Computed example of a mutant assay.
Amino acid sequence: MARLLEARRPPGKPRAAVAATWPVGEETGLPKFAKALILPIMSTMNISLPEGLKSFVDEQVSQRGYGTSSEYVRELIRKDQDRQRLRSFLLAGAESPLTPPIDAAYFEGLRDRIRKAAKPGDGE
Protein backbone atom coordinates (compact mmCIF):
# COMPACT_ATOMS: atom_id res chain seq x y z
CA MET A 1 0.00 0.00 0.00
CA ALA A 2 2.77 2.42 0.93
CA ARG A 3 4.45 1.74 -2.41
CA LEU A 4 1.19 2.55 -4.20
CA LEU A 5 0.95 5.82 -2.30
CA GLU A 6 4.56 6.65 -3.11
CA ALA A 7 3.95 5.95 -6.79
CA ARG A 8 0.98 8.35 -6.77
CA ARG A 9 2.80 11.09 -4.81
CA PRO A 10 3.87 13.99 -6.99
CA PRO A 11 7.36 15.34 -6.21
CA GLY A 12 7.32 17.76 -3.30
CA LYS A 13 3.85 16.76 -2.08
CA PRO A 14 3.75 15.43 1.51
CA ARG A 15 2.73 11.81 2.11
CA ALA A 16 -0.28 12.80 4.24
CA ALA A 17 -1.70 14.90 1.42
CA VAL A 18 -1.51 11.97 -0.99
CA ALA A 19 -2.91 9.51 1.53
CA ALA A 20 -5.84 11.85 2.15
CA THR A 21 -6.73 11.59 -1.55
CA TRP A 22 -6.59 7.78 -1.56
CA PRO A 23 -10.11 6.44 -2.15
CA VAL A 24 -11.88 4.95 0.85
CA GLY A 25 -15.12 3.07 1.46
CA GLU A 26 -17.03 1.99 -1.63
CA GLU A 27 -14.79 4.09 -3.88
CA THR A 28 -11.87 1.67 -3.53
CA GLY A 29 -13.59 -1.05 -5.53
CA LEU A 30 -12.11 -3.57 -3.09
CA PRO A 31 -14.10 -6.47 -1.61
CA LYS A 32 -15.30 -5.97 1.98
CA PHE A 33 -12.58 -8.11 3.57
CA ALA A 34 -9.85 -6.07 1.88
CA LYS A 35 -11.26 -2.69 2.97
CA ALA A 36 -10.34 -3.48 6.56
CA LEU A 37 -6.71 -3.76 5.48
CA ILE A 38 -6.41 -0.10 4.42
CA LEU A 39 -3.96 1.46 6.84
CA PRO A 40 -4.57 4.74 8.64
CA ILE A 41 -2.57 7.79 7.65
CA MET A 42 0.72 7.76 9.53
CA SER A 43 2.71 10.69 10.80
CA THR A 44 6.48 10.84 10.65
CA MET A 45 8.68 11.13 13.73
CA ASN A 46 12.46 11.28 13.68
CA ILE A 47 14.27 9.82 16.68
CA SER A 48 17.95 10.32 17.47
CA LEU A 49 19.66 7.30 18.99
CA PRO A 50 23.20 6.67 20.16
CA GLU A 51 25.04 4.21 17.91
CA GLY A 52 24.68 1.38 20.43
CA LEU A 53 20.88 1.69 20.53
CA LYS A 54 20.65 2.03 16.75
CA SER A 55 22.69 -1.16 16.35
CA PHE A 56 20.41 -2.92 18.83
CA VAL A 57 17.28 -1.82 16.92
CA ASP A 58 18.79 -2.89 13.60
CA GLU A 59 19.69 -6.26 15.11
CA GLN A 60 16.15 -6.75 16.46
CA VAL A 61 14.63 -5.84 13.10
CA SER A 62 16.70 -8.42 11.27
CA GLN A 63 16.47 -11.19 13.91
CA ARG A 64 12.79 -10.86 14.76
CA GLY A 65 11.38 -10.48 11.26
CA TYR A 66 10.35 -6.83 11.24
CA GLY A 67 10.37 -5.13 7.87
CA THR A 68 11.65 -1.80 9.17
CA SER A 69 12.81 -0.17 12.37
CA SER A 70 9.51 1.74 12.37
CA GLU A 71 7.59 -1.55 12.67
CA TYR A 72 9.77 -2.53 15.62
CA VAL A 73 9.25 0.82 17.38
CA ARG A 74 5.47 0.70 16.75
CA GLU A 75 5.37 -2.77 18.33
CA LEU A 76 7.30 -1.50 21.38
CA ILE A 77 4.85 1.38 21.74
CA ARG A 78 1.83 -0.95 21.46
CA LYS A 79 3.31 -3.23 24.12
CA ASP A 80 3.90 -0.24 26.41
CA GLN A 81 0.28 0.89 25.86
CA ASP A 82 -0.91 -2.62 26.79
CA ARG A 83 1.30 -2.62 29.87
CA GLN A 84 -0.04 0.75 30.99
CA ARG A 85 -3.64 -0.38 30.39
CA LEU A 86 -3.05 -3.54 32.43
CA ARG A 87 -1.45 -1.50 35.22
CA SER A 88 -4.46 0.82 35.37
CA PHE A 89 -6.81 -2.20 35.57
CA LEU A 90 -4.72 -3.69 38.38
CA LEU A 91 -4.67 -0.41 40.30
CA ALA A 92 -8.44 0.00 39.85
CA GLY A 93 -8.93 -3.53 41.17
CA ALA A 94 -6.67 -2.89 44.14
CA GLU A 95 -8.64 0.27 44.99
CA SER A 96 -12.05 -1.42 44.68
CA PRO A 97 -13.93 -2.50 47.80
CA LEU A 98 -13.45 -6.00 49.12
CA THR A 99 -15.99 -8.61 48.13
CA PRO A 100 -17.05 -11.72 50.03
CA PRO A 101 -14.70 -14.65 49.51
CA ILE A 102 -15.35 -16.86 46.51
CA ASP A 103 -15.70 -20.36 47.88
CA ALA A 104 -17.63 -23.57 47.19
CA ALA A 105 -20.91 -21.99 48.40
CA TYR A 106 -20.50 -19.12 45.92
CA PHE A 107 -20.06 -21.52 42.99
CA GLU A 108 -22.96 -23.67 44.13
CA GLY A 109 -25.16 -20.56 44.14
CA LEU A 110 -24.08 -19.81 40.56
CA ARG A 111 -24.91 -23.36 39.52
CA ASP A 112 -28.36 -23.08 41.13
CA ARG A 113 -29.06 -19.86 39.23
CA ILE A 114 -28.03 -21.49 35.95
CA ARG A 115 -30.15 -24.56 36.61
CA LYS A 116 -33.20 -22.41 37.37
CA ALA A 117 -32.66 -20.31 34.24
CA ALA A 118 -32.27 -23.44 32.08
CA LYS A 119 -35.50 -25.14 33.21
CA PRO A 120 -38.01 -25.34 30.35
CA GLY A 121 -41.33 -23.58 30.83
CA ASP A 122 -40.06 -21.03 33.35
CA GLY A 123 -41.22 -17.57 32.39
CA GLU A 124 -42.35 -18.37 28.85
Rank of each mutant, 00 (worst) to 15 (best):
R85K: 09
M1Q: 10
L98N: 07
R9D: 07
E75V: 00
L4A: 13
L5M: 09
R15S: 05
L37I: 04
R64D: 11
G123D: 13
I47E: 10
L39T: 12
Y66D: 03
D122L: 13
D82M: 11
M42E: 10
I47Y: 10
L39P: 10
A2I: 12
R3I: 03
G67V: 04
A118H: 07
R115I: 11
Y66V: 04
F33A: 11
G12K: 03
L5H: 03
S62D: 13
Y66L: 03
T44M: 08
G109E: 14
L53M: 09
P100D: 14
D80H: 14
V24H: 05
A17R: 05
P31C: 00
G52F: 10
M1V: 05
R85G: 03
R113P: 04
E124N: 09
G29F: 02
V61K: 01
I77W: 07
S62A: 15
P100F: 03
K32L: 15
R3G: 09
A92C: 02
P100T: 04
P14R: 01
L91C: 06
A20L: 04
I102E: 11
K13T: 15
L30A: 01
P50R: 13
F56Q: 04
L76N: 02
A104G: 05
M45N: 07
R85I: 02
E71D: 15
D112T: 13
T99E: 14
A104R: 12
P11I: 03
A94K: 08
A94Q: 13
E59M: 05
L86K: 07
P11S: 11
F33C: 06
Q84M: 10
Q63G: 08
S55H: 10
G29I: 01
E71I: 00
L90N: 10
P40I: 01
R9V: 04
K116H: 06
L53C: 08
G121L: 10
A92T: 09
Y106E: 12
S48V: 12
A20K: 06
R78V: 07
Q81H: 14
F89G: 02
R3S: 08
A92P: 03
R64T: 04
I114P: 00
K119D: 08
L91Q: 14
S43M: 04
M1P: 09
A118S: 09
D112Y: 05
S43H: 12
D122E: 15
I41C: 10
E95V: 06
I77Y: 09
D58V: 00
T21M: 07
P14E: 01
T21D: 12
L4E: 06
R83H: 08
S70L: 03
I47A: 14
S96D: 12
E124Q: 09
K13N: 01
L86I: 11
M42V: 09
Q60L: 05
G121V: 04
S48A: 14
E124G: 09
R113G: 12
F56G: 01
D122S: 07
A118Q: 14
M45R: 13
T21G: 05
A2Q: 13
G121H: 12
P100R: 05
A94G: 06
W22S: 01
G65L: 02
V61W: 01
T21P: 00
D58I: 00
A118G: 03
G67W: 01
R8P: 00
G52Q: 13
L37G: 02
E108K: 11
Y66I: 01
P50N: 12
G67H: 05
R87V: 06
L53W: 03
R15N: 04
D80L: 14
Q63D: 12
D82R: 10
A105R: 05
I114E: 09
E59R: 10
L53T: 08
